[in-house]
Design a protein around this nucleic acid. Structure first.
Lengths: 336, 336
DNA sequence: TTGAAAGCGATACCAC
DNA sequence: GTGGTATCGCTTTCAA
């Protein structure tokens, strides 16, 4: 492989000068610079970034770890970060854990090993040990829905409970009292928080409210199976509240297959407001978490150089909002 | 920051020994190894990966550049690669270009700078100059639908034409002769190949066949607008062939909004067979490109160490297959 | 304006 | 088995 020295020789200058040209240090005489640039072009030389960061250049890459790029929620957050970063000359390196704690650990190790300028953990399978290690460390970190802010760690917390309350209140207004909840296992804090919130909100507005739960794998098929579960029980809920949109769409499919009409026979809600929610049939009533806001906060916390970095160490609260579409309607006596 | 030396001191050994422990070179006495491991744990030491690859350790990371992670096609390919890689201890670093040639160039530079073990370009905005530079270089490369195989470059080519022929043949069988094609601009070779193939196939089966084209941005909204375009013309096509599923779903939405029923009033087909195609309404008749096959080929070409690498330098042809679902039916006289 | 040389943090070869 | 050390490719003083 080629190195600075190869270029230096060809341009008849020292490696120091080539480095200066490469980094835009503008003390270099124009003619020299030209010679160097020509050499670089002729050789198709590409600086070794490993050597560069080893030598102590400011690291302009930030790491983002998400649970699952398939899930548009994570993808959208990632894209917001990426877009901000690229605008300021930062690189992003992303890892997805597929909800597996060991993969989370491996990804964190990799990010630390790569000495990223900052690391954002937007995952649901959060591990206490990792959070602690990160907190005790030095690296700027953004934690999503876990840990505590302060020093070099920013915390972004989403007020799920409020989001769920909005859904339940809205459904209650429509006369619903028999709810089904579709969630997924994996002892993810945010998810079970959503489930519990349904129970409590429902009971708060009507003590006789009924809440049944079905858990399955995350994803379309999981939603489908969970809906099937709910339907196989004796009486039907009048509204099904899903912990995320993907599962909700799965539920929608299952209901359609069984000849139930949404929202006439039964109402369905999602959570997250992914793009699909707008376009599925019927369009999904759901809760929006402003993902670009999350992404921007990540950037502002981690890109300490880029006039940003003011957000580091603070805590941000994100408030979900109800988005009413076509999958919800007035309650009617349970079918069947 | 901490280094090998810090660990070495604490464990009262040389850096060489620490390195041995780290890399599982098993000549180290058990007791020594234990001491070193304890020091590593105590210090929460993480090796600097930049230093490591600079020092010449085998690089176990491969780069994947895709056009758009939003597009499930690219995402699926990426995931297949990622899964294979992780299984063999490789890392993947992904970049997406958002179809922007300059971003492609930047991403390639970054990958080369990072000295990845191999690089896969699965993009539609392919740039001749980049392909050439890569071909002239040394790095193992996989090119998708462009360039030529040989030496250190693997080529994966998709037989789009055949895919399109299958669609057109099928529709012709159903009696369709008036086609609308929805595509997107960006002078992407594979895309225009699909458009042209429609024209030719259609004319081949019936010289009087009619083909109208509408181009818009890639994505749901683009598909929607393109469909609107097609509808605003005088006579309606009896079948709309879309260059990808996302645009097809957009078209479906527009048609529904306009009160047209699919497939009764008009048939619609997609291309790619993303998951959404299965679950949208009506489920989309489309063409499947075996994405995991693409991903596996990438891995087998690039992970030269892992018993793989046998695929490097070869050319692979991928044959799309027709997947008939509910969005297509017999032709009927144009509505309106 | 330019060059020489000291690191940065690992690996790996060569001795002991 | 273990330690010393040249080396990887670059950035960055310090002098010239």
């Amino acid at each position: 492989m080629m190195s600075l020295e190869t270029v230096a020789k060809r341009a008849r200058v020292s490696t120091a000068t080539v480095s200066r040209v490469l980094n835009g240090v503008d003390v270099v005489k124009t003619s020299t610079r030209a010679r160097v640039m020509k050499a670089i072009a002729d050789l198709k030389y590409h600086p070794n970034l490993h050597a560069r960061s080893l030598a102590g250049a400011v690291n302009k890459t930030i790491g983002v770890i998400v649970s699952n790029l398939d899930n548009p929620f994570f993808l959208d957050v990632y894209r917001a970060v990426e877009s901000d970063c690229h605008a300021e000359g930062y690189e992003v390196i992303v890892a997805n854990t597929l909800y597996r704690p060991e993969q989370l650990a491996a990804s964190v190790r990799m990010m630390i090993g790569r000495r990223v300028a900052g690391l954002a953990l937007i995952v649901s399978e959060m591990d206490e040990g990792i959070v602690q290690e990160l907190t005790e460390g030095q690296m700027p970190v953004v934690l999503y829905d876990v840990g505590a802010a302060g020093g070099h760690v920013t915390k972004i917390r989403v007020n799920y409970r409020r989001g769920v309350e909005r859904v339940v209140d809205y459904l209650t207004t429509l006369g619903h009292t028999d709810f089904g909840v579709i969630g997924h296992h994996s002892g993810l804090a945010p998810i079970s928080e959503r489930c519990n919130a349904v129970l409590e909100s429902a009971r708060a507005s009507d003590p006789r409210a009924t809440v049944r739960q079905a858990l399955d794998a995350d994803g379309l098929e999981g939603g489908r199976r969970a809906a099937a579960d709910l339907l196989s029980a004796g009486t039907l809920p009048t509204a099904i509240i899903c912990v995320n949109d993907i599962m909700a769409v799965g539920a929608l499919l299952e209901l359609r297959d069984r000849g139930l009409r949404v929202p006439r026979d039964i109402s369905v809600t999602g959570f997250d407001d992914i793009e699909l929610a707008k376009f599925c049939y019927p369009a999904l009533t759901t809760v929006n978490i402003p993902r670009d806001q999350v992404g921007h906060t990540v950037f502002r916390s981690l890109a300490v150089g880029a006039g940003a970095g003011d957000a580091l160490g603070r805590e941000f609260s994100v408030n979900p909002e109800l988005v009413v579409r076509e999958s919800t309607g007035p309650a009617r006596a349970s079918a069947i």
